[in-house]
Design a protein around this nucleic acid. Structure first.
Lengths: 202, 202
DNA sequence: GCTTGTCTGGGACAGTTGACCCACTTTTCC
DNA sequence: GGAAAAGTGGGTCAACTGTCCCAGACAAGC
């Protein structure tokens, strides 16, 4: 193993941990599994980071910073009207979930674990703030493209969008029912489109 | 410890496990913690159940059977109109979450663990089927009381309601923002009311 | 060139966990 | 009443986990 400064090792470990969690789950992300994924020796772990929980904190910060979450570029499409845009964005998101279910499940597992761990209890708040900020950004951009705006505060609508995507994801993870998921995407689109300035859900 | 038949011990262990998971999380629900909660000796555990995962399977079946989930009686209220009923039911649900956050978190943890465990992988499908059936039941009952019905299949609407409640719960668990949760309840109500026969969301 | 500080590898340790074994007691049933 | 079955308790085991230690290798600065 070549010599790598501790700070670099730290971020490499966080990335490795995220990979392991996505593939095998949080419970399988032991210190040994993480260093194996990163190609390091076990001693490097505690040289770079004080404890496993501290590394998990780094992992969540990684998620908050946007990695692990989809970027707005990958979700925002150009469609003839706002309704199509919203629907296409929901659809693109579901596509990401279906392409890598483990990664999305990793987000839930990290949240649940952080909520149960006093030292990490503040992180889910940031995590969901990050999600909602992404949703808000997409909502503003989508409305702007089609020269419209929303009839209620974007923050409130962003929270709705985040709740919907979480719910859509959990339901699909549980039963993998593609048809039902598509129908739910339609309803989610309706729910958002109710709050356009012109008001008409059609 | 008095003598108890193995089948009774098995259900008692499942209830104890659910209590431990709700209080301390799934990771803390070790065989020793569970038997301590149930007031049994460790040997009784493996006499009543073959493995820890088998007991967790029982726990999820408990959830599917309705325990751990709110009953429709506790959620269905009588309100002057359908919109008020829907809104009050959402509100009652959020009240349950706020009263015992750990219990609702336990549901998520059980789902995530089951999804990662091949032997339990089928259970989340039943779990979410159970949630959606409860939602469908509430939707039908609510519409019937006010002499209306829904403009789309109840199953599809039930999936939307379940997705919304999951999303509302996760967001509240993460940031404990009561005001934002109330606003989100309004939007969730709008999303459901869009699909009444008369159509008007007002 | 040599000292100082940074990094690395292998090994070790204590604690916890799921599982299990065996001797014992209690119930059941003939 | 006695044999068979059912249930109980304590102790034990191997595996795994997070953490740490220490001897050595490398890089940087004087």
């Amino acid at each position: 193993m070549s010599r790598i400064p501790a700070t670099e090792r730290r971020t490499a470990l966080a990335h490795a941990a995220l990979a392991v969690i996505g593939r095998d789950g949080l419970a399988a992300a032991t210190t040994r599994a993480i260093v194996a994924e990163a190609g390091m020796s076990l001693a490097s772990f505690h040289y770079a980071v004080a404890s496993r929980d501290e590394l998990l904190s780094d992992v969540i910060e990684l998620v908050v910073a946007g990695e692990g979450t989809a970027t707005s570029e990958s979700l925002l499409t150009d469609s003839p009207d706002l309704r199509s845009t919203v629907r296409a964005t929901f659809s693109a998101y579901l596509g990401l979930v279906r392409a890598d279910p483990g990664r999305e499940q990793a987000m839930f597992e990290l949240t649940q674990h952080a909520l149960r761990t006093p030292a990490l209890a503040e992180l889910p708040k940031q995590q969901y703030g990050s999600y909602q900020a992404l949703a808000a950004q997409l909502l503003v951009a989508g409305a702007a493209v089609h020269g419209t705006s929303w009839s209620i505060p974007v923050d409130a609508l962003a929270r709705l969008v985040t709740a919907l995507t979480d719910g859509i994801t959990l339901a699909w993870l549980a039963d993998r029912d593609d048809a039902a998921a598509e129908t739910l995407l339609d309803l989610a689109t309706d729910a958002v489109m109710t709050h356009t300035l012109n008001g008409a859900p059609e």
